[in-house]
Design a protein around this nucleic acid. Structure first.
Length: 522
DNA sequence: GGGATACGCGCC
DNA sequence: AAAGGGCGCGTATCCC
């Protein structure tokens, strides 16, 4: 059963609309009585309000996210995906551009009526049914929509973040918090060491100045990447490397960052569902997906609670094995350590097996990659061919799709020009690497979304999902629920696997541990 | 002095 | 050893 929510109106599809003065109350009642699939134009505008009112729903159909998926599938990537745009297209009216994420309320368009939302829903369901694999795409839409609920809930609940531990860590590494605009003491000391090593002032934040300073000292550098610096014998290198590491910590995850993103002992980032073309999430602030490992000790469970941290082991090669139906690779993917199981095919070297798989999925060509890929082609022909086909499609400017039907963007007009020019083969290869990776990364993202959607439904109150990072999920729950949640993670992993691939010999191990601090998880 | 781009590096 | 996919984002730097 679908129930539309638009403005203050609730409309069961096929029934009659009801205007309500208490939207949250109406949703709460219907959710308890019917647990319908809620339909809204854009969950980002509806769900946070419901959460603030203490209302959560189990499932939804997000029109904007679904429209984006459908447009891409239909080769219309980039057309406005809002429900208002979809509705305008239905009637041949001028199509409004999508609003930026923070809509300007002054110029925001009139929201769609509940009836109009229902019309867009009907149109989307019709378009989905017309696809070659409607079942898969329905799963994709359900998973993407569930992701939108989870993202909003995780921002609302927040990840535990101990500001006192954070401050102690920063003070330990950088020195006390400096006044605005100043470098912390230890950072300044390292900058001074760099300058002393050169015998003149150098701004360690300036690539230009560094390259020039090293040149003056008789060292030719193309870049100042740390791996290149590490090969150089010069007294400035050690303090410079230390400076770069700490400077990043200071500017990216320092006190100013905490002031902005940590409230009430919780870190509340803004997740962007489907923000990456492959279907991975992005963040629009807070850098939640780039928290340095050294910061993990700051994430500490509340008293009497634990963090359940679970990550999928070697998700992408397993996804490839399942998609390609490669029996040999699938057999290896029946083991907990896939690369170890592959080692004997690669001269007994686990490291070589890993390089071969990563090169196949990323399009690597350097070092031993060609030799190892030749082995892979011979031993795992179907898996090899699967990513080769994706790469070829990309090179030829065609679209590729993930397992459930998320579709890559078409080549840009710039690319089409480039590909017929002198640098054409380079441009073609670049796009081939992208599409090669897209099919694997995109399907891995789908598996992870399905996992989260299932897990969410299995969690007991008051356990909460509080963090998600590509193939890793964190649940915050009372200590007494730890075992139940760990078991739920395992169930959700098998169910996600079944939902995507049905009966497959490929295993998707998702090991969960209960810890009081995130730093203890690995 | 404000916007756009390059660099570098954190995460997967 | 140093190149192969996806991002976000702070600083420096360029350009108008």
């Amino acid at each position: 059963m679908y129930v539309v929510v638009a403005g203050e109106t609730v409309l069961p599809v096929g029934g009659s609309a009801r205007r309500t003065a208490d939207l949250a109350g109406a949703v709460r009642e219907l959710e308890a009585a019917e647990h319908p699939r809620w339909v809204w134009a854009d969950g980002r505008e509806v769900y946070p309000g419901l959460l603030s009112a203490g209302v959560r729903v189990s499932r939804c159909h997000d029109l904007a996210l679904t429209e984006g998926l459908l447009l891409a599938y239909e080769g219309r990537y980039g057309e406005p995906r809002s429900a208002a745009a979809a509705h305008a297209r239905l009637y041949g009216l001028p199509v409004p551009e999508d609003q930026p994420s923070a809509p300007d309320t002054l110029f925001a368009p009139e929201p769609l009526s509940a009836e109009a939302v229902a019309e867009v829903l009907a149109d989307q369901l019709r378009r989905i049914e017309a696809l070659p694999e409607p079942g898969r795409f329905r799963l994709l839409v359900a998973a993407e929509s569930a992701g939108a609920l989870i993202a909003a809930e995780m921002s609302y609940d927040g990840m535990p973040w101990r500001r006192d531990v954070h401050d102690a860590l920063l003070t330990d590494l950088l020195g006390p918090r400096p006044v605005h605009g100043m470098r912390p003491a230890k950072l300044q000391a390292l900058a001074d060491e760099v300058a002393a090593a050169f015998g003149h002032p150098v701004n360690p934040d300036s690539v230009q100045q560094l390259v020039k300073a090293f040149k003056g000292a008789g060292v030719a550098l193309k870049t100042t990447r740390s791996w290149e610096l590490k090969q150089i014998d010069h007294p400035a290198v050690a303090p410079l490397l230390a400076y770069k590491e700490l400077a990043r910590l200071f500017s990216f995850h320092g006190w100013v960052w905490a002031d902005q993103w940590v409230r009430g002992g919780r870190f509340r980032p803004e997740y962007v569902v489907g923000g990456v073309v492959s279907g991975r999430w992005a963040t629009s602030g807070g850098g939640a997906l780039q928290i340095p490992k050294v910061m993990r000790r700051v994430v500490v469970a509340d008293d009497g609670w634990v963090l359940i941290v679970a990550d999928a082991a070697q998700l992408e090669p397993r996804v490839l094995a399942a998609m390609a139906g490669d029996v040999g690779l699938a057999r290896a993917a029946g083991e907990i350590d896939l690369y170890a199981a592959l080692a004997q095919s690669f001269g007994g070297e686990r490291a070589n097996a890993k390089i071969a798989m990563l090169s196949a999925m990323y399009g690597g060509t350097s070092g031993d990659a060609p030799k190892l890929l030749a082995v892979m082609r011979q031993r795992f022909p179907k898996a090899y061919q699967f990513v080769e086909d994706a790469a070829k499609a990309g090179e030829e400017g065609r679209l590729v799709r993930s397992w459930l039907g998320r579709t890559s963007p078409p080549p840009s007009s710039r690319w089409r020009e480039l590909v017929s020019g002198p640098e054409g083969s380079r441009a073609a290869r670049d796009r081939g690497r992208f599409t090669r990776n897209f099919v694997v990364q995109g399907t891995a993202a789908e598996w992870a979304l399905a996992l989260m959607a299932v897990l969410r439904g299995l969690l007991p109150e008051p356990a909460r999902m509080v963090f998600f990072q590509h193939d890793e999920v964190m649940v915050h729950c009372p200590i007494s629920q730890a075992e139940e949640v760990i078991a739920a993670v395992a169930s959700a992993a098998s169910e996600a696997t079944r939902l995507l691939f049905g009966a497959t010999p490929v295993r998707f191990p998702m090991e969960a541990v209960a810890v009081s601090s995130y730093a203890d998880a690995k």
